[in-house]
Write a protein that binds this DNA or RNA. Structure first.
Lengths: 199, 199
DNA sequence: TGACAAATCGAACGACCGTTCTATTCTAAC
DNA sequence: GTTAGAATAGAACGGTCGTTCGATTTGTCA
């Protein structure tokens, strides 16, 4: 790795942390440069524009998310255990300072067309696809009923995660973790083969 | 209403619309003054500080939310019908340009202590209390089982709303409305007296 | 109608923003 | 060890931000 790539990566690493707290557009080049011990223009040269920096930050966030949540979940058995691992992994991920990068960024960018938004949409869809895939495997493994809708379950799981985020980080409700767990269990129960009720 | 109060109210009305789209801190006094046909300092004088303006905007949002969602729901029969009305009312509310003010503002302010945050926390808690209250009434009316936890249901409903917001406004998923409805029905089904399963 | 207060304006402030340029320092390959 | 090119620095730009202050218009009530 050349010197340039090295500092660029170091910048992105810190930029990602910072953006998780202050938001993608709240991230400022001057502030970031100061934290990195670089000049504003020196740092700027690595990206060429603020928007390109934002895109790179979103990509860095995806990279870290894959590494810290998705990959470890793949080490768990296929089906429900893996789905649980994904849920647990996200809970861990959401504990870092500033919470979940994607939750903040998606509400921030929902009305701002452009490359950063497109990149984030792609990342979020990948995550939802991963959840749906885990549900689909749960069906084929015989853990869930055949008539369970994977995309529907992924939707509801993600809603849980968002609710958890708001209750924990904004309302600071100490009951949040239990609430989320309980809702998740209800979702699993309703999806299992043992359950007699149709969905 | 004096002249001052009148323009102040007009400013807040527009400021609320604007803040729903660009966020609470994204709201700028210069931009707002231009839209209102006022000078920057003239508009500024109505509030004294940006932070005071932000607080006033949050209050205005609460005012409108009560008027457009909560009050109409009270005209529906106690219990499950009213809970449905609250849900439907929120869905309508979330359709306005920029989506739901509270969803955007709460992720924006979760790491920014101060009066605007405190005001918003209060407003959101009021809304959640209203949901929980509707659930509680549903129990006493015999629509829901006695062992249903009102706060838990309120948590899950709010999670649904958040999921809907992200899927609809950020991902632009056309299936969103159905997904949210279906999840809501599952929640109601699991809560009803007819259901044999314990929660 | 006159007088006092309320409302609004206009200019200026310092701070920070992203971006551009030119000059300098450093790194890496020959 | 020299040299070309990459990496960084520094100063300056136009712009917007929230805020202050003194002057001026406008509304309100005796």
């Amino acid at each position: 790795m050349s010197k340039g790539e090295e500092t660029r990566q170091a910048i992105l690493s810190r930029a990602f942390e910072l953006a998780t707290v202050v938001g993608v557009s709240g991230l400022s080049i001057g502030r970031l440069a100061e934290e990195m011990g670089l000049s504003k223009s020196g740092l700027f040269a690595h990206f060429g524009s603020k928007e390109a920096l934002e895109v790179a930050v979103v990509e860095e966030a995806s990279r870290q998310f894959v590494q810290e949540v998705m990959v470890p979940a793949l080490r768990h058995p296929r089906g429900e255990p893996r789905l649980r691992a994904l849920f647990d992994g996200w809970m861990q991920w959401g504990q870092r300072p500033g919470g979940c990068f994607f939750v903040g960024a998606s509400t921030e960018l929902d009305d701002r067309p452009g490359a950063p938004r497109d990149t984030l949409v792609r990342a979020l869809k990948d995550w939802l696809d991963e959840l749906a895939k885990a549900v689909r495997i749960s069906i084929s493994e015989g853990h869930f009923r055949a008539d369970v809708n994977p995309e529907q379950v992924a939707f509801e799981i993600y809603g849980l995660m968002l609710g958890m985020h708001t209750f924990h980080r904004f309302l600071r409700e100490p009951t949040t973790l239990d609430r989320a767990r309980q809702a998740f269990e209800r979702l699993l129960t309703d999806s299992r083969v043992a359950s007699p009720r149709s969905r």
